[in-house]
């Protein structure tokens, strides 16, 4: 290595590979599940603590950010009032309705589109164009068509969710293994049998992926719709709290929405693991 002159005949290079050292305590902690969870708790405590400190530090900061304790208190109070639940019910009803309509209509259209190459080639540019339209911008049109009530929010949710399902189901239903087609044909499967035994089954993971995305988008669409024009719903509550400069209440509503979204997402995650255990894709 160094420039020391050594007789090359006598130089022996050795490299020793020794047994791996046993993991130290720190390594054991960082690779354990409990260690990861402990880390998460620390992150949460630090984040909430910083937030609390900032809010307690000055009135100005408190005005903009409130504090975790205040938000918690407001949330508990809020959950005790019937008006909150009336609004939550309205929003969730709109979101679920929008989601279901999107899922049914989008899936049917996506599936049908995958069955006909000709129809697909004709419609492809139209679908792409509509899909790339920022559909939240349709809110004003929907208010005109469906009024200020719940229907316009459902329509907005559908305008987002429909395409999520359409695109996913279309892809799932057209990504059919060439070999399945050959084998099924030589087995004498007719078209209906092929759809029932192969296409529908292989579309399931795509439908679940679409559902996860579709649900969160439906909630978002409904909240935005209500912010734009509504007398009730969580979106209008958010807006009211904002115009009352009630930061704690806004955050309390957001926390509620967060919890609802997390529960739904976990439920779908469970469904995904149950129904797609055959897939070699890591979950």
């Amino acid at each position: 290595m160094t420039a020391v002159a050594v007789d090359p005949e006598t130089t022996v290079h050795t490299m020793t590979i020794t047994a791996q050292a046993r993991p130290g305590r720190w390594e054991r902690i960082t690779s354990s599940r409990a260690g990861v969870w402990a880390g998460r708790v620390v992150v949460a405590i630090v984040a909430l603590g910083v937030w609390q400190l900032i809010g307690d530090h000055s009135n100005r900061m408190n005005f903009f950010f409130s504090t975790p304790t205040e938000v918690g208190r407001t949330l508990v109070d809020m959950l005790g009032t019937s008006t909150f639940w009336t609004d939550a019910y309205v929003s969730l009803k709109e979101a679920v309705l929008g989601f279901v309509i999107s899922a049914v209509a989008g899936s049917i259209c996506g599936f049908a589109l995958a069955q006909s190459r000709f129809a697909n080639r004709i419609l492809d540019p139209f679908v792409s164009a509509l899909n790339s339209l920022p559909r939240i911008a349709l809110a004003s049109v929907f208010i005109l068509y469906f009024g200020l009530g719940e229907a316009s929010k459902v329509a907005l949710a559908v305008s987002l969710g429909f395409f999520i399902f359409l695109v996913n189901i279309y892809q799932g239903a057209s990504a059919i293994n060439e070999e399945w087609t050959v084998v099924m044909r030589t087995m004498g499967a007719n078209r209906l049998q092929f759809i029932r035994k192969v296409t529908l089954q292989s579309t399931v993971p795509w439908a679940i992926a679409a559902s996860r995305l579709g649900l969160s988008q439906a909630i978002a669409a409904v909240i935005i719709g209500e912010m734009l024009s509504a007398q009730n719903g969580l979106g209008s509550q958010l807006l009211t709290a904002s115009s009352n400069f009630d930061t704690a209440r806004q955050y309390a509503i957001l926390v509620f929405l967060l919890i609802v979204a997390m529960i739904l997402n976990e439920g779908l995650g469970y469904a995904e693991r149950r129904t797609t255990s055959w897939s070699s894709r890591p979950h």
């Binding site: 293994n177 099924m184 030589t186 087995m187 499967a189 035994k197 070699s280």
Partner: peptide
Amino acid sequence: VAYMLARDALLPWRSAQKNVELPMELA
């Protein structure tokens, strides 16, 4: 006529048994 390919072309959501049953199901 039956066709066997280089790749198995099994349906991944079906068990071995159900895959073998498939042509009989169709028939």
